[in-house]
Design a protein around this nucleic acid. Sequence first.
DNA 1: CCCGTATTAATACACATGTTTTAATACAAA
DNA 2: TTTGTATTAAAACATGTGTATTAATACGGG
Lengths: 209, 209
Amino acid sequence: MPLEDDGSTRNKLLMAAIRIFAQNGYKETTVRQICKQAGSSNINSINYYFGGKEALYREILELVFREYDLRKDPDFASKTPEERLRIFIETHCEMLYREGEFASDLTAIFMAEMLKPSPFLTELVDRYNRPRVKQHLAMIRAIIGDDKPEATVRSCLVSIAGQILYYSFAWPVYARLFPSDKTVPDHQKLADHIYRFSMGGLTAVKGKK
Amino acid sequence: MPLEDDGSTRNKLLMAAIRIFAQNGYKETTVRQICKQAGSSNINSINYYFGGKEALYREILELVFREYDLRKDPDFASKTPEERLRIFIETHCEMLYREGEFASDLTAIFMAEMLKPSPFLTELVDRYNRPRVKQHLAMIRAIIGDDKPEATVRSCLVSIAGQILYYSFAWPVYARLFPSDKTVPDHQKLADHIYRFSMGGLTAVKGKK
DNA sequence: CCCGTATTAATACACATGTTTTAATACAAA
DNA sequence: TTTGTATTAAAACATGTGTATTAATACGGG
């Protein structure tokens, strides 16, 4: 668990790096910034502990994917497809939008990686995302029916994922359009809406033709 | 129209800059790269024609928003809300996913701006996006009914926009998950799916309570 | 042809960055 | 205490960056 603050220099550097990478992106972040924020006036510490800026980023990226993967979908098997969809949406909304800057920092790093992938992304997607997505596709197929082509199942998953992820990347624009909305909606209310909307959407797709 | 290639040095620089900004982002892009790609072996040309790297980016950003704004929603008034929704979805899918690297370059710049806004974003959103969004909210309200709170209308717009935008930012991950999908779905098919799914979702929201 | 302006070319400059190097210090074990 | 290793500190280094400066060249009007 590299998350809890054990007070070590290495950990303070890691925490500071997560914060600053999330805020400014990889290229804009400087090792001097990180060291300063970590309280170390030693600009060599990142090379000393991590072997360089890129290796530090790589370690953080691993941490991002692992953190999200820790949220296991609880006893998926015993649930109906609709219940599984609800849990799927709630879990992801909570991951992305629960309180705590730490979670939103990890999300920001993940989003930046989505938009402009580093060389590490492919391997991480294979290792962490691919198995999950298989389950999600099966869940959707169980709702809309076996007669639908695989492309339709994927499109439905995209429709749901797009809704879940929206605020993660579009918040800067949304917040300017609606300045009265000071923060992303409460994750429970958001999950409720997305579930209702998505069930409606899936029903419409199921009834096609 | 700064789009057509008139062969001037200034225009070649602009085109090259759009391409490279889209590919690498603002910070990673160097003026030397742009000049080289534009065929000018003069690293001073950007200062000469645009007044600096930042001013060049600013001009491109203006161009991005203006280009998207050119797509006027055609005779919106004479249509039913459902027809307007269909046009809305089709127009945006076509804007984002029609062939041509130029369009996708503009999209990439817009997405990067969404995720990590430059100081210019606020003004551009006010000038270009805000008026449109008002129309879109009215359109959705006309479908789900006047009794629904404004927050619900916004959530529905988010649900639709999230679907439309998904591939724009998540393509690098999606493409790794489904390597057989060589490209973003045909924009017409995509629009069909999103319309069906969204009408189902809106119907579900309309029938709530 | 000649001149003045627009453009291109080439170089210099100031600055920031990641990394390396070298020295100083802390700290535990023998 | 002494010794050896882990850590911190400070400076140096090589490189890449945007911009400024200066010179060369092109080109059109008189």
